[in-house]
Design a protein around this nucleic acid. Structure first.
Lengths: 520, 520
DNA sequence: TTGTTGGCTTTAAGCCGACAA
DNA sequence: TTGTCGGCTTAAAGCCAACAA
């Protein structure tokens, strides 16, 4: 089963995919806190933040020799002409392309600024996200679907089928279709059995593997089939010669009247506690017949009965728990996307009854090596020079925003910026609220306190609001989630304003409804 | 067998590998025509060419909005402070990193220019390069080593072994070791046999597959083993019941005195042309015994004899041709490097008796998508602004040169540039010589005629020598090699000077020894 | 409820030889 | 000499069930 690429590598001007990506899926992959500014609105562009993204993407800080660009202010007010969503064809990492045009001073004088906080990240309602386990990503098996997730997101199964199964077709960000076999595994078990004639004997039903039957001459080895702890002398109730935990001549019609096939059962019964009687069991209408004994059976399977269980009606074992699984097709997806344990997958059932499929990479160190043709310094210069040139000429320029690689969003709605930077008296000691994204892509809140307000880089970027608010948030993520650092993302008010320690990405909103507490 | 990465992903400042790559292997991968300028010499940097490389790497031309950089001349004379060789960790594509420092006008006045044509591309003497076939890259088999290549490059095999085999350990550009089983396949054949007693009968030796023996009950099916065109009635010379092209009871000692195992042979002999006598053959000291008949055999294998061959000494078939193969380990390498048919591999046996291994990708369309974090326009601006800033401040800047992605080299020794641009009277009608790289990485010559001399981009780059010489070379590569476009590369005089149509990359040298023919 | 493990089946990978270009 | 293919062997992938957390 191979993926069928619908749009194979078609690329447009700036290297993204030709068609617009599914917005719902894009936002689900980006996370619940990522929001994009609206087209044809005014935004603030932080070149510092853009520089941070390049540094994060290349794993390298600037080394100096960066020219100054006097025409480029720390906050560049722009008209946002276009926003398109993209995904890296190699890694599926989501990113957005924005076309910005710096506003002239005259244009900025147009003080009508509609209240616009950007596109709220519409997380889909009918979806689930699961962090992959070692079992999910190993080649040994498939994908274990959390039960509630499967019932909520996947189409209902026809439970009259044995086993209940269907083919799921899910499309990823690149419109590639992936097919999965979805089954609801039912373990056939001997739920209840009634044994009439004998008593005082332990017994066991052993299912016969088809391969053992096919080797239609020789021995049928039942050692390891559940009889290891039983007496070693084995006999057949029908008088056939039986060896030590081996039954000679099983199959090929050698047991009279019984054609043994795969799926049949061997009944083993202890005889006076030092010998085991073995015989073939026939299954007829929920009844198994073993020699002269009948068992009423529903959901026949391997089962055991203790010595004391053998009189009258016996309820042997409970039915095994059922579960939802993706089997065929899953490993192809895992290897194609190079998923490892710790990465996440998310399934969306959208309003058009389509199944969408996205991935999020875990916090493993990205060994991205994107520039074998342009030096990091040149890239840093390039983004600054491009923005400066655009600012000087009021011409358009294009940037990429990679929400999951970028420490903080660096293009934010103008009204959001004005509200946070000017309409809020930010001061030392003030408490604030943060939003975090947990591993399950839900949102958690956290409270912090502002400890300082100053320029992050007073030399190059004087009077910048970029990360001008400081707060010590030591090992914050450890309190949120025990195992690994979560990836907080953007939300109501730009995290650009906060320079917090020990936290990669977070977001700040002043505490709702409570007046700022100023201890300074 | 897994690769053992010696230096796993260690990266230095600009994203390359930490240690210096093997120069010999780097040059072999780059091709015979690629040469690098020497460290601490003067070079000419063509920003136009650098821009072409970015355009080729991103598959996108600049779209305008590129600022002018008056401080950046078309030819920027620089001191070359450093050249390091690198390889893309994902694709193994080779590239070079250079640190350049523009020279001030005063420094340029130092007219002492040593004759320096750059590092001649020292192609290794003991190496071979092979373009992979479909069989080489399929999972069905290994790598067929051309015989002369194996004899020249690989260590000699011990031909006393059966089969002659050794383990080869080759290091790639990243110092990762790859292990391959190298065998010289010897097909065991019945080369000569003497049959004494019978005559007038066709016969055939059939080797017995171990699996057929292991299924130690049932039938041995010899249909398809070479007897399909023989009479269908089969009998055993020892009187055992024999069916239609099946021998009952073979194995398990059922044929007296003969323990049939894998590797034994069945002798089939026609009897009166409508029946086949089948028996087990014992092998003793180069002699096979079949019933009462003896055959003197060397290199026993499957063989056939016609009816007329049966009297006296028989030379039945010629020995099958032998060949060198890489088996175990090869497919791991192919999948790790994502090689496909059309790509090339090259093996070098260097002076330290080490085996080096490099790859070259074929001409398939590179779907590289390197920029999901910086727009192409910003990259173009970045390279220009970085060079312009360095030119204005006489400070160092860093560039990457990717010889196999780049149309022409854009950093060339100053003396080479001066010789080509000023000491040679280039004129319309002049004939010139070009060097091309063929698929087998050898060099071919081609002659051309100059048809024009003018600026390629008179607006932005006036008075530039970059591609100022024009020549119509229609479908040149088709004449060189029939199947696909070859990848010509650099040589004696910079291809930067030539703007040839229909040719991706080529190189120009004025015809040696012959005076330029000027028809203008 | 679900992560992991063992047993067995099925599929793919991989080695050898054959044959033809 | 070497590219490709069929047959057989070996190794990996993959399905089912068991069991425990």
């Amino acid at each position: 089963m191979k993926p069928s690429p619908a749009s194979s590598g078609q690329q447009d001007d700036e290297g993204g995919e030709k068609r617009c990506l599914n917005s719902e899926l894009w936002h689900a992959c980006a996370g619940p806190l990522v929001c994009l500014p609206n087209i044809d609105t005014r935004v603030v562009y932080f070149a510092q933040g853009h520089s941070e993204q390049v540094a994060a993407s290349t794993n390298k800080e600037v080394e100096g020799h960066i020219p100054n660009y006097p025409s480029l202010p720390p906050q560049l007010i722009c008209q946002l002409h276009n926003v398109t969503m993209h995904a890296d064809p190699e890694t599926d990492d989501v990113y957005a392309q924005m076309t910005l045009q710096p506003l002239s001073l005259e244009e900025q004088k147009d003080t009508y600024i509609p209240i616009d906080m950007g596109v709220p990240s519409k997380q889909p309602t009918n979806y689930f996200c699961k962090t992959l386990t070692a079992s999910d990503t190993s080649t040994h098996g498939g994908f274990s679907v959390p039960r509630r997730a499967a019932e909520k997101v996947f189409p209902p199964l026809d439970f009259s089928l044995q086993p209940p199964a269907q083919e799921l077709i899910a499309r990823d960000l690149h419109e590639v279709e992936w097919k999965f076999r979805h089954i609801f595994r039912v373990c056939h078990m001997l739920k209840s059995a009634t044994r009439n004639n004998r008593s005082g004997e332990a017994w066991r039903l052993i299912s016969v593997a088809p391969t053992k039957v096919r080797k239609s001459c020789g021995l049928l080895d039942v050692a390891g089939g559940g009889l290891n702890s039983w007496p070693s002398k084995v006999a057949s109730s029908r008088g056939r010669q039986v060896g030590t935990r081996q039954i000679n001549g099983i199959g090929s019609g050698m047991l009279e009247g019984v054609a043994l096939t795969g799926g049949n059962f061997i009944m083993a019964v202890t005889k006076e506690k030092n010998e085991v009687i073995v015989d073939v069991v026939e299954e007829k209408n929920d009844t198994v017949v073993c020699a002269d004994n009948e068992f009423n059976v529903s959901n026949v399977g391997e089962a055991t009965g203790a010595v004391s269980d053998n009189i009258g009606d016996i309820n042997v074992v409970e039915s095994q728990p059922k579960r939802h699984l993706l089997t065929t097709g899953w490993s192809v997806f895992v290897s194609a996307k190079r998923l490892v344990a710790g990465d996440s997958v998310l399934f969306i059932w959208n309003e058009n009854n389509q199944l969408l499929l996205g991935i999020r990479h875990g916090n493993r160190p990205q060994t991205v090596m994107p520039s074998s043709f342009l030096s990091c310094d040149s890239m840093h210069i390039g983004l600054l020079a491009a923005a400066a040139h655009a600012a000087a000429t009021n011409s358009r320029f294009t940037i990429f925003y990679n929400p999951r690689a970028c420490p903080s969003e660096f293009v934010i709605p103008l009204s959001k910026y004005i509200k946070a930077a000017f309409h809020t008296r930010v001061s030392v000691g003030m408490r604030f609220r943060m939003l975090f994204e947990t591993e399950e892509s839900s949102v958690r809140r956290y409270m912090g306190t502002i400890t300082g307000i100053c320029d992050l880089d007073p030399v190059r970027w004087a009077n910048s609001h970029w990360r001008s608010v400081k707060s010590p948030l030591k090992s914050l993520t450890l309190r949120i989630k025990g195992r690994r650092a979560s990836l907080p993302a953007c939300a109501i008010v730009p995290s650009s304003l906060l320079h917090a320690y020990d936290v990669h990405r977070l977001d700040v909103g002043l505490v709702n409804g409570s007046p700022p507490v100023n201890t300074a």
